[in-house]
Simulated scan of single mutants.
Amino acid sequence: MAQTVRGVVSRSKGAPVELVDVVVPDPGPGEAVVRVQACGVCHTDLHYREGGINDEYPFLLGHEAAGVVESVGEGVTDVAPGDFVVLNWRAVCGACRACLKGKPWYCFNTHNAAQPMTLADGTPLSAALGIGAFAEKTLVHAGQCTKVDPRVSPEVAGLLGCGVMAGLGAAVNTGNVGRGDSVAVIGCGGVGAAAVAGANLAGATTVIGIDLDPRKLEWARGLGATHTVNASDEDVVERVRELTGGHGADVVIDAVGRPETWEQAFHARDLAGTVVLVGVPTPDMRIDMPLIDFFSRGGALKSSWYGDCLPSRDFPYLIDLHLQGRLDLGAFVTETIALDQVEEAFAKMHHGDVLRSVVVF
């Protein structure tokens, strides 16, 4: 029987979010209902509220979540009621051309629940990234549930659902950072700070955090940056070269996603180095550069989708590292909040006051 829970909804572009009744159907074939225990407030949720993703209002926001499977639909075998899971928005299909080539992290046909959750009056809700976890319970495709060690606290586990995985994976998976590498990260908010942590975890010996905000540079130092550059008063390209023997970094990660930061990343890398774009640009942004620059510098220019992660591989591994004391996921949690404080958390995020606010149920 369908359940009614409380959830955070965005009804129109730019309007404050509302805490309302949400109807969660029983799980159908391949689906699962998850009792949400914690959900991070991610910038992507703010993008949804501002109409930056699409205009399919109303949205049920929230996607960086962990919780316990309550019930499953027909045919579900990978998870069962009682399992502690982190939710993901790239539930691989196993059958598309990427999956069949052995690269499921590029899956072109990821799954979401077939049924919509609704408002009390029956209006269908668009679940943010197919999850909608600013709610006491949510309906997802079972493939969006990744089992992890239940000893981990939900408020840190859920962060792997988006921002931390995106940044950490940009370094480890997309950038292929290795032992002894030099890495520069432009933008040290939640995603960039995670990229710093990922570079450190992968064995980079020089990790340079770059930002305009001294608070974010301090966060980067706490997560393993060996050097920081304040872009408001230093030339980013020249400073990165100075810190890397005059050559440039082996890997430069743009966690901002603007033309000017991407060009900084391009020129701050060593010859044949790698640029990774993980910050999300807007559709109107353009770059005008001489083609000879691309040819003469060589190397690789990559975009990172969700840190090129495979949840079934990466989530349990990273949780294990956290439990062993080798990856401090708790460092990303600035504050824990109640469900009715999401709008306030958006304001703090917009002003750069937090790495992550996390809703705890």
Rank of each mutant, 00 (worst) to 15 (best):
F295K: 10
A170P: 13
V85N: 09
E136H: 08
A197V: 02
A220Q: 05
V140Q: 09
G122V: 12
L61Y: 06
G161V: 01
G248K: 12
M1R: 12
W305F: 14
V8F: 05
V17Y: 01
E335W: 06
T261V: 08
L321Q: 13
L168I: 01
R326C: 04
L323S: 02
K137E: 00
D181S: 15
H63T: 00
Y48I: 00
R313E: 03
G299S: 04
G178E: 05
T334P: 11
L321R: 13
P104A: 03
G67K: 06
E136K: 05
V140H: 12
L160H: 02
R297Y: 11
A32K: 15
S357N: 15
C309Q: 10
V359D: 02
S312D: 03
G158M: 06
R356Q: 06
L212F: 10
V92T: 13
H322V: 05
A347M: 10
P290V: 04
E260S: 12
P290I: 06
V236F: 10
D233K: 11
A220F: 06
E335I: 04
I292P: 02
W89M: 03
P150N: 05
G203A: 09
S12N: 10
G73R: 15
K302E: 00
A113G: 02
Y57W: 12
S182N: 10
E343P: 07
G245F: 14
E344V: 04
A135M: 05
D149A: 00
G198T: 01
G187R: 15
R6D: 02
W305I: 11
L61C: 01
S312R: 15
L100A: 09
F134C: 01
P316D: 02
R215M: 13
D181N: 13
H63Q: 08
G245W: 12
E238I: 03
G161S: 07
I319W: 10
K103L: 12
G178M: 08
D55H: 11
C96N: 05
R215Q: 13
L271Y: 12
V34S: 00
E343H: 05
E238S: 14
I208G: 02
G122D: 02
A194C: 03
F361W: 12
H47M: 11
P290C: 08
G167K: 15
Q115R: 15
G203D: 01
F108T: 13
N173H: 14
N173V: 04
G67Q: 02
S303P: 08
A231G: 15
